[in-house]
Design a binder for these strands. Sequence first.
RNA 1: UUAGCCAGCUAGGCAAUUACGCCGCAAGGUGAGGAAAGUCCGAGCAUCGCAGAGCAAUCACGCUUGAUAACGUCAAGCCAAGGUAACUUGAGGAAAAGUGCAACAGAAAGAUACCGCCACUUGUGGCAAGGGUGAAAAAGUGAGGUAAGAGCUCACUCAAAGUUAUGGUGACAUAGCUUUGCUGUAAACUCCGUGAGAUGCAAGGUGUGGAACAUAUGGGCUGCUCGUCCGUUCCCGUGACCGCUGGAGCAUGGCAGCAAUGUCAUGCCAAGAUUGAUGAUUGCCUUAAAUGACAGAACUCGGCUUAUAGGCUGACUAAAACG
RNA 2: GCUGAUGUGGCGAAAUGGCAGACGCACAAGGUUCAGGUCCUUGUGAGAGCAAUCUCAUGCAGGUUCAAGUCCUGUCAUCAGCA
Length: 116
Amino acid sequence: MLKKANRLKKRYQFNYVYKAGEHFVGKAMVLYTSTSKTKNIKVGFAVNKKIGHAFKRNLIKRRLREIVYSEIPNMKQQYNIIVMARENIFDFSFSELSEEFQKLILKAGLLNEKIS
RNA sequence: UUAGCCAGCUAGGCAAUUACGCCGCAAGGUGAGGAAAGUCCGAGCAUCGCAGAGCAAUCACGCUUGAUAACGUCAAGCCAAGGUAACUUGAGGAAAAGUGCAACAGAAAGAUACCGCCACUUGUGGCAAGGGUGAAAAAGUGAGGUAAGAGCUCACUCAAAGUUAUGGUGACAUAGCUUUGCUGUAAACUCCGUGAGAUGCAAGGUGUGGAACAUAUGGGCUGCUCGUCCGUUCCCGUGACCGCUGGAGCAUGGCAGCAAUGUCAUGCCAAGAUUGAUGAUUGCCUUAAAUGACAGAACUCGGCUUAUAGGCUGACUAAAACG
RNA sequence: GCUGAUGUGGCGAAAUGGCAGACGCACAAGGUUCAGGUCCUUGUGAGAGCAAUCUCAUGCAGGUUCAAGUCCUGUCAUCAGCA
């Protein structure tokens, strides 16, 4: 369930979410959301060059991906979301990032109603 | 022991759970580095029409011998500079083919005479020892010599060119003889020698969609000239598939070589993504300490350069102490 | 992945291999004015020093040269182009 079908890929898809959706700001990351026509949730990650060289950016993306995928079963489907890293994200540990992401999806109302 | 100098090794290991890429019908297998980095050199490969040639321009390199597919790389040497030494550093051909440049200071910057010295004499001749300037001032010391002086002469020394002998594959070294006393700069132009066609996988191929035009004052990858080719063309888009990983490959051992490296035997197959796969949690072992340095493949190799925690091993030098 | 350009006071910039920082903006002080603006004059890189003055400064590290912002090599940062 967490494979290519669940990813945002194209540049126009990213641009659509940035323009049409809402955003929620955290200490280490920013969450962009918009509703989607497809049944499954789609996730994209944005980590720009300010964070560091290739090694740091890849590590951040892997950790974010792990956090997001573990939460997907608890979340509403039919949404597109983008997780954008902020410049200071490298100072946070994995568990801190996980807590913050949970707060953000609660704030955005993306948690599945049955569970919440 | 202290200080130094050179070289090499390592970049934790084995598992469990869960998540992901690729291969596979499945079971299962497999999954980043010593620099993967910078893109600074050298190649493979591809295209420019599987037709190019000459000249020019431009760029790069520049001691010797060897290694290599090749190199601007490497090894062993030579020479120069630095260091007490181990050792380090060097784009290290030509300045006597030609041109340019050498600020300021200084009389004068490859050409001279301000002060000064000497002679006759009151402005002419001779001189370059002494003075000061400068990064650099006509080779240095001593003696002879002279009106005063000067490589003008002599002795020794220094430097350069030529030449002979010996040693070395060679760069070169040592010794002798002859001649000379010539500034520095080529990382200024230049000359000499050697080399380079251009563009880079966003190359390029297959497939697919769209548009324009009807044949030229067209197009064909630095310039010019010549030759030649194209109508199956040209332009734009998409990025599905191929290119895409078995290769100047890796490991172990023997042999040759001072070494770089070569060669033989045996065994092995080890990422292939395209919003881009390695994350998270835990246990045991090694250890002084265990996830903690620098850091992530994007067509593939050989180098160079730069970043790098902690630790280990070996050779050598100087000083001091002891034997 | 590939290709190219730039780096000098607080900012924008100039500088044949020869005293680095011309010039403009900005800032500070003084003058002019009842006051402000305009205008005029002077000054302003960093450190040490009472001062004279000395040392360090052209992204960084080396090299060539008597002498380097300038020439050469390496490196770092920033910016731009190629879909």
